[in-house]
Amino acid sequence: MMEKDVQKTENVSATERIRNVKTFVPRVDIYENKDALFLIADMPGVDEKTVDIELEKNVLKICGCVENGRIPDATLMYSEYEIGDYERVFTLSDEIDREKIVASVKNGVLRLELPKAEKVKPRKIAIKAA
């Protein structure tokens, strides 16, 4: 695997943040079937209480707060990864049914189901016999 694939990517956003921690861009998989779009994001250290999903107009923002990850009374001897929050923004099209978005978190992986709106679902067109 290449380096960029293995290491976490740091978020380089121009906006100032309140929490003084690094933020990372979670890696995501997006796939779709005929009914919905699915978004899977790797956010280790996050659970259902610390993940925050916001939908404002057509902007979907996923945030995950991670506690500092320090082990009490232990000293860090060797470090290959850093700990920080996660943040990533997606723009949704009108094809998504905003009311029916479902999210779940398991083992540090966020899963979002974004159902497609009825009007854009593929339909079979019946051919009438002439």
Partner: peptide, 8 residues
């Protein structure tokens, strides 16, 4: 990637 800590 791993982090290694030392404790007691």
């Amino acid at each position: 990637a791993v982090n290694i800590w030392e404790k007691n």
